[in-house]
Amino acid sequence: MPTDAPLLFNIQKYSLFDGPGIRTVFFFKGCPLSCRWCSNPESQSPAAEIAFEERVCMGCGRCVATCPNEALSADTRGISVDRRKCTVCLACVEGCPTGAMLQYGRRYEIDELVAIAAKDSAFYRRSGGGVTLSGGEPLLYPAFAKELLAACRDEALDTAIETCGAVEWNAIAEVAPLIDTFYFDLKHVDDAKHREGTRHGVEPTLSNLRRLATGDANLVVRYPFIPNFNTAPEDVEAIAEWVAENAPGRRVELMPYHRYGEKKYATLDRLYTMEGTTVPSDEEIASAVEVFTHRGIECVRMH
C-alpha cells in the first residue's frame, strides 16, 4: 500500500451526475475545506470515524456492551458516541447486527479498487461512463490518486475527478494527464466570503483554476449555489465575471443547495449550522444561470 494510502468513506456504483454516463465514484476521506453546507460531513476528517444510523437500529444495546472504552451510551435518540473516549477500534461496528453502527473510512489496495471499478464495465461501455474520484478531496493524496488513475486508465476506464481545488498546484499537475474530465468547484471569488463559508481563503483555488483553465484539460467549473453565501445578485455577477475572464469557454454546472446531507450530521454527533435554510427557488436558479449565459458562458443547472 502506498505510504499516503488514504481512507475511502464510500464507493458508489450507478452514479449518474459525477461525470459522463454511469459511473463508479470513489469518495476519499479528508478535505482542506469545511463548508457549512457540506452534504458529506463524513468526508471532512481524514481519520476513520464511527457513526450511528438510528433508523436501522433494533435497540439491542450490543454496541454499548462491546465497547472496551465505554464511549457509547444509549439514550432517547439511540446511541451517543463520546468522541473523546472513542478510539475507533470498530468493536461496536463488528458487533452491531443491523449495520446501524457504521464505519466511515476504510483503506483499499489499488488493485482492489480497480477490480471494483471494472465490475461495471458493461455499463460504462454503453453509457460512456467510468470512474470518478471524489470526496472529501482526492488531491490531498496525489501519489495515491495518480497511481489509482493510472491503473484505471490501464483498464481503459474513463476517469474524472471532483476537486475543491484548495490543494497545491503540483497535486493537480501530477494527475492532470490521467484525467478525462475535471470538475472544479468555484464556491466564491471573494476571499472574506469564501473564508466565512469554508473556513479557508479563496487562494489557492482561484490561482489553480486559472492555471488549469489556460491548459488543454477538459475542465468543467462547478458552482455550488448556496443561499446566504453566494446567491445574491452581486455574488453571481462577480463569479460569472471571474469565469468569463479566467476560465473562458469553460462550461459551468450550477449545483443548487440541497439538504440531503443534513441527517448525517447527527449520526456523527455534529451540528448542522445550515438548519432551516430553504433550498433556492427555480426562479432564483434560472436567473443565476441567465447571468452566465448572458456573458456567453455555457451554464446548466444540475438536479
Binding site: 450507478y14 451526475f17 452534504s39 458529506n40 433508523r55 436501522v56 462547478r222 439538504r259 441527517k263
Partner: peptide, 25 residues
C-alpha cells in the same frame, strides 16, 4: 427504512440512500 435500503438518491458529489435522509427532505 430497514426494508428499503435499496432506494437510491443520486445527486452529484453526494453519497447516500433515501432511508438516510432527514424526514423533511
Amino acid at each position: 427504512p430497514a426494508e428499503h435500503r435499496d432506494l437510491l438518491i443520486r445527486v452529484a458529489g453526494y453519497s447516500a440512500y433515501f432511508a438516510n435522509l432527514h424526514n423533511e427532505v
